[in-house]
Nucleic acid binder design. Structure first.
Lengths: 204, 204
DNA sequence: AAGAAAAGTTGAACCAATTCTAAAATTGAG
DNA sequence: CTCAATTTTAGAATTGGTTCAACTTTTCTT
């Protein structure tokens, strides 16, 4: 069933995403006109709207790829974490943050986050919420792992702590992308400081 | 210096905000057309844009009033907090959350939050960031207060814990407004659960 | 009180996302 | 190969936020 039609469809998807990625980075989200994306992807405007419900969904597809990469990178840390709670958390969070600007500019992140709260029921809105949940789960999984190897007290409510840590990190990341002059090292240091009390409290 | 011009200006401001508030609630943010707001406020479209940079700023003015009320209500709790850490935090957070839907619908919150990340440098974006900071400070102030009366250990990093608690609450609130069917009691219970570890850790 | 300057108001025009339509192209089935 | 179904295409129409140049109103000056 992988007929020509299937292949062409996949190819158009890729062309649209490639064109949009390039233009979003060059001209910013607002500056990248649908007409220009269509031209660069060598499809018509109508085709773009046939593939994606709206401009936000195109950005959404790009964000999804990025976050999925981050989730993959995170699995390694969960599987074999550094040998103390603070470093383990810092390493996982570090992966999230350091990867975050690989493909997406701060402006793209701002737009993506805005769209996901503005239209929570759009395809992208739902995907974004799901990705957040997966990241939260990954942090909780790390804590569970640390409990297994006796670095975290067994009576700690892992899922709740995972949510707390993720929500704080996410909010800090939002503030980070809102300020163009904000830098990654300061962001990480601030998060480490915030987590310190928690790390002390849950450590075995 | 309270000439005619001043009075007319104040009056127009009020009429625009009243019209917008009514229409946002009736028709939703997107549904409330600038043209309709102008008509109901009995000013021209141009005048609205003379008073507010864009549609988001109108919503911003409404949100500001709401948040400032909440901040005021919170001062009482900080001044004389309940006699244990868990209840003190729960009371303050309760005030924030219970007041939150007095004037603003979930849809209005979604839009407001989206705009504040999308346009962090717009007048509203800056005001919103400042309000978040004030809420964070208020939580930190509560913790400082609890340290004074020996309910919280003196060596705890109050500001960091305040940020952690605020960021978590805020993120939970964002998820809350994203789901129309989400209910306040469940939200509060979830936040209480997340804060539990922290409460245990900082209590004297 | 008249005239000039300053401040504010107005709505038509503009722009870009999105929708719609009818025609052209492509594909898979028989 | 031919036909019917599906997709793509180009572009016109729609829509709603935002801008702008001309017009009014208010204030200031003398």
């Amino acid at each position: 069933m992988s007929g020509l039609r299937e292949r062409q469809k996949a190819d158009r998807h890729r062309r649209i995403i490639d064109a949009a990625t390039a233009l979003f980075r060059e001209a910013g989200y607002e500056g990248a006109k649908i007409e220009a994306i269509a031209a660069q992807a060598e499809v018509s405007i109508g085709t773009i709207y046939n593939y994606y419900q709206n401009k936000g969904d195109i950005l959404g597809a790009i964000v999804s790829m990025e976050v999925n990469e981050v989730l993959n990178a995170g699995r390694g840390v969960v599987a074999s974490p550094p040998a103390n709670v603070g470093d383990a958390l810092d390493t996982l969070i570090g992966i999230y943050i350091e990867h975050s600007l690989n493909y997406l500019s701060k402006e793209m992140w701002r737009q993506a986050m805005a769209i996901s709260t503005q239209l929570p029921d759009s395809p992208f809105g739902q995907v974004y919420t799901a990705l957040d949940r997966e990241l939260t789960s990954q942090i909780s999984a790390l804590i569970a792992r640390l409990q297994e190897i006796d670095l975290v007290r067994p009576d700690i409510d892992g899922p709740a702590v995972g949510e707390l840590i993720f929500n704080n990190m996410n909010m800090m990341f939002i503030e980070f992308v809102k300020r163009d002059e904000a830098r990654i090292p300061e962001l990480r240091a601030a998060i480490r400081r915030q987590n310190r009390v928690l790390v002390a409290a849950i450590g075995a």
